[in-house]
Every structure is written in structure tokens, then in C-alpha cells.
């Protein structure tokens, strides 16, 4: 496996930011009540991560060591504000649903962590792939969590009614637990459990 592919696949599958590194949990709880905003958030984070890793990697030989963190932060914030502005212009309803959490991508430890740990020491292409891989790794979990929360919380998928809550007719009732952040915790732990069992063979 080439370095580039490894950079992409490793965080996406094995070293998943949420399931293994347990990063970015705050937004994973907040934006996963419905699939649509979760998907938008996943795309936004992937775009920010890919571009921030690419930019940091391109500048890695120039960035003065003394101020590298603040430079990374400046690049990331610029990208996040760009994403926020674009969402406000072309996906207004979703941007209102995501509210502060788009701005908070800046503080998402995955973004900063990858810039600092990977992009600063690697060439642009693998850095870009690492960013996208991590973003997608985060996004996939987000969408999976949102799938279960939307389905069992309000009985819908992408806004279409799938399960009807009628305790009298056939005894099924929407789960209030899925609507609150606690539900996301439960699902994430289940994902971590499944993921850990799957990746056990990669560990020594």
C-alpha cells in the first residue's frame, strides 16, 4: 500500500477519529439528531480538514516553529469561516440548524491535531489524503449515529416518515432517549464496541 493510500485509509478505517481517538465528540452529540445536518457537517469538516492539511503541508518548510500553532489556527479559522459563509449563502436552513457548531469546527481537535501531527511533517498529497480520510472517518460515524437517532427518535429518515409512533395500535413508541444527546453517547459506545472487535486483529 502506498503512503498516500495508507494516509487516507488508516484514519478512515482503523484509527478512526471518533471510534478510536475519541475526538470531536461534542459536535458528534450536537448535530446528529437528523441525517441531513449530520451529512452537511461531515462534508464541511472533511473540506476543512483536507484543505487545512494541504495548506499547512505546503507551507511546512516556511512556517516558523515559534508561531506554528497560531499559524495553523489562522489557516483553519479562515477555512471554517469560508465554509460558514458558503453555507449561509447556499444552505441557509441547514446552516441555521447547525448554528454555532460550524464555527466550532475551529476548535474540533481532529483538525488541529492532524495539522500538527501529520501535515507539518509530510508532503502535500499524503497530507491532503490524511485530512480527507480523517474527515470522512468522522463523517461516517456522524451519519451512522444520525441514522439511528432520526429513525428511532422521530421515526423519520431524511425527513420522510418511516416508523409511525402509535403505542395503541402496535405498541411502538418513538424513543425520547434518541432525541437527547445521551442517545448519541449510547450509539457511539456501541459503534466503538463493534469497531474495536473488528480492528482487534490489527493490534498486537
Amino acid at each position: 500500500m502506498s503512503d498516500t493510500m495508507k494516509a487516507f485509509k488508516d484514519p478512515f478505517v482503523i484509527n478512526n477519529p471518533i471510534a478510536v481517538q475519541v475526538l470531536g465528540i461534542c459536535s458528534a452529540l450536537a448535530v446528529t439528531t437528523q441525517i441531513k445536518p449530520a451529512f452537511t457537517m461531515a462534508v464541511a469538516v472533511t473540506a476543512v480538514m483536507g484543505l487545512s492539511n494541504l495548506t499547512v503541508s505546503l507551507l511546512r518548510k516556511q512556517i516558523p516553529n515559534k508561531i506554528r500553532i497560531i499559524i495553523e489556527l489562522t489557516i483553519i479559522s479562515t477555512l471554517v469561516i469560508l465554509v460558514d459563509q458558503i453555507l449561509k449563502a447556499y444552505a441557509y436552513d441547514i446552516s441555521r440548524q447547525l448554528s454555532v457548531f460550524v464555527g466550532l469546527i475551529i476548535t474540533n481537535c481532529i483538525v488541529m491535531g492532524r495539522a500538527e501531527a501529520y501535515a507539518l511533517h509530510n508532503p502535500p498529497i499524503p497530507a491532503l489524503m490524511d485530512g480527507i480520510g480523517n474527515g470522512l472517518g468522522y463523517g461516517v460515524i456522524l451519519v451512522i449515529v444520525a441514522f439511528f437517532r432520526e429513525l428511532f427518535g422521530v421515526g423519520k429518515l431524511l425527513g420522510k416518515e418511516i416508523l409511525t409512533s402509535s403505542p395503541d395500535a402496535w405498541g411502538y413508541k418513538h424513543s425520547g432517549l434518541m432525541v437527547v444527546p445521551t442517545g448519541a453517547f449510547v450509539i457511539i459506545s456501541l459503534i466503538v464496541w463493534v469497531h474495536h472487535n473488528y480492528t482487534k486483529k490489527f493490534e498486537d
Binding site: I70, I71, T74, I75, S77, I81, A89, Y92
Partner: peptide, 25 residues
């Protein structure tokens, strides 16, 4: 010098985007 350049570049990018997208927003 590096800090100044990065700041100016970022500011220009953000300013241009904000201005361009304002009518739609």
C-alpha cells in the same frame, strides 16, 4: 514577516468571500 503575510492573505480571502456572498445571504 511570515505572520504578517499569512494574516493579510487570510483577511483578503475572507473579505472577498463575505462581499461576494452577501447579497445571497
Amino acid at each position: 514577516t511570515f505572520a504578517t503575510i499569512v494574516t493579510i492573505v487570510c483577511a483578503v480571502i475572507l473579505g472577498a468571500t463575505a462581499t461576494a456572498l452577501k447579497p445571497q445571504q
